[in-house]
């Protein structure tokens, strides 16, 4: 039997052993799967949040706050004037009353606001640049042009909150990386302990195999496959858990993003990410078994 045949035969035997001990194998695989699914879900969530941020970044808005007392007719004149510009896709005039209505609705402070003697909110223009003019330079230039409107008191480029969002996303991304590392360590410890128990349970068999001429590689092989298969099965189950969680969460997430005016669709694991997850699961399982085998197998010698 050549090396390839021996490995194929051991792979089949290890798979059979996992199936023979289906309950305990499943418990170990489930622990690995849950441990792997947590960072995977975090990564998918971060990935979706990044996409959401990018979709917002792609269409900056400029708010032109006009002097109090600017009439609606003047506001509409400005709309017509600005809509003729090449770099502007859309302009909307929001009167002071409309602004107040929106504020009451969104803030939930309706009754408190009614106590105010007069409306403190200014009328404004909401300017959406043309998709050809969304670069930082183009929006800065447009902002300067809008500041030249005589009634304009302030022009705000609505990117600050996206910048805040991205900063928070960076923190979450770092957090996800730390959690991923810690949970990878947990997978290694779990599989390593499982292999230690398997070695301990098969001590007598290992002694006999060594006595009849089984090499260290031969004795090691089933445990390496056991670790590899547990990691692999754990990764596949983690992928299923991730898909299920995202399926469950996608509705509420899309509902939330709709409220912010983004036509956003959540994405699950890409083929690329799935590949990495499987590679990570199988790799961690194999690594853990190598650690455990090198630690515990050398202590078992025929007596």
């Amino acid at each position: 039997m050549n090396w390839f045949e021996q490995n194929r035969s051991e792979l089949v035997a290890s798979l059979q052993r996992l199936l023979d001990n289906s309950f305990s194998s499943f418990m170990s695989i489930a622990v690995v799967a849950i441990t792997l699914s947590l960072p995977t879900i975090m990564q998918v969530v971060v990935g979706n949040a990044e996409r959401l941020g990018q979709s917002w970044e792609g269409r900056p808005q400029l708010s032109v706050f006009l002097a109090p007392g600017t009439t609606e007719s003047r506001g509409l004149e400005l709309v017509l004037e600005l809509q003729g510009k090449l770099e502007i896709a859309q302009v909307e005039f929001i009167s002071a009353d409309q602004a107040m209505q929106e504020f009451k609705m969104l803030s939930g402070l309706g009754s408190a606001v009614e106590l105010l003697p007069n409306n403190p909110l200014p009328p404004s223009l909401l300017v959406l640049p043309d998709s050809e003019f969304v670069s930082a330079e183009a929006t800065a230039l447009l902002r300067t042009q809008l500041q030249e409107i005589p009634e304009a008191e302030d022009v705000q480029l609505d990117l600050e909150w996206i910048q805040r969002f991205n900063s928070m996303l960076n923190i979450v991304r770092r957090g996800a990386q730390i959690v991923s590392l810690l949970l990878a360590l947990t997978v290694v410890l779990t599989v390593s302990n499982m292999i230690r128990l398997a070695i301990s349970n098969r001590k007598e068999e290992i002694e006999i195999i060594k006595l009849i001429g089984g090499s260290d590689a031969f004795v090691r092989r089933p445990f390496l496959y056991q670790g590899f298969l547990t990691g692999l099965a754990g990764a596949l189950l983690a992928a299923l858990i991730t898909y299920a969680v995202l399926l469950w969460m996608s509705g509420p997430i899309e509902q939330l993003t709709d409220l912010y005016g983004a036509n956003f669709e959540t994405r699950g694991l890409s083929i690329h990410s799935l590949g990495w997850l499987i590679l990570a699961g199988a790799g961690l399982g194999l690594f853990a078994s190598v650690l455990s085998v090198s630690q515990h197998l050398k202590n078992i010698e025929p007596r």
Partner: peptide, 17 residues
Amino acid sequence: APIRRQIGIIFQDHKLL
């Protein structure tokens, strides 16, 4: 291991799996 493969060993307690 290769040396042990040249030797067949029989034990009083059989050492069977």
